[in-house]
């Protein structure tokens, strides 16, 4: 009994593809669904905002692709455990809210030392969060090492509010903005951060080319 060559080869091919299919079944199976549309009512409480923020953080915002919560070691992006506490003092002249907002809207404006630029603005595609979704994410981030303080009506500089100390922005954009004067060492800070912002700008420019 000799199996014809054609059949042998067919069996071999089916066997090999079958084996690879089997390998494919052995790994964890996960479907990735496109983000769902999130409706934020006008009268949500801060606690609800935190919950929405968590959903956005884990889903549509794809934050977890890069960021971790409570991990240490060789990380590519900053860990967000205790971010609420760090945000308040990471950048002189920035309140916690302003810092968080800036990291979401203009991630390249300030890079945490030890890391490289690489985050995309959360309000633009492909992430493309709405302003209120970003607000919810900020609310959630505030609970990581702190308590959420923002409400659905909170405004910050990107949504028409005011930034408390705007030195870097003022220096880079050469906009005569009096807001920077409150700072203790306005000139030093402004120049230092302007350089940084410029460097970030360069990087962004390089990316475009």
């Amino acid at each position: 009994m000799k199996i014809p060559i054609t059949l042998q080869i067919a069996l071999l091919a089916v066997g090999m593809t079958g084996f690879y299919t089997l390998v494919g079944q052995a790994v964890p199976q996960k479907e990735v669904h496109p983000p769902e549309v999130i409706e934020v009512a006008a009268n949500v409480t801060t606690a609800e905002l935190v919950e929405i923020g968590r959903t956005v953080f884990e889903g549509k915002g794809i934050c977890q692709t890069c960021h971790t919560i409570g991990k240490s070691g060789a990380l590519r992006f900053p860990d967000l455990q205790g971010i609420a506490e760090r945000a308040a003092r990471q950048r002189p002249g920035y309140t916690q809210l302003d810092y968080l907002a800036e990291s979401l809207y203009e991630p390249d404006a300030f890079i945490v030392p030890g890391f490289v630029a690489g985050m995309q603005p959360a309000n633009r595609p492909p992430i493309g969060l709405s302003d209120v979704e970003i607000l919810a994410v900020i609310a959630y981030l505030q609970t990581l090492g702190g308590a959420a303080t923002v409400t659905v009506d909170t405004k910050f500089v990107y949504t028409g509010g005011a930034r408390e100390q705007d030195a870097a922005e003022a220096a880079t954009e050469a906009v005569a903005d009096a807001a920077g004067s409150e700072d203790e060492e306005p000139s030093d800070l402004a120049s230092g951060e302007a350089a940084e912002a410029e460097a970030a700008g360069d990087r962004a420019g390089g990316d475009d080319g």
Partner: peptide
């Protein structure tokens, strides 16, 4: 499940 034994404190 992983439990954080020492969670980040509030401000």
């Amino acid at each position: 499940f992983a439990r954080t034994v020492h969670p980040a404190p509030p401000d």
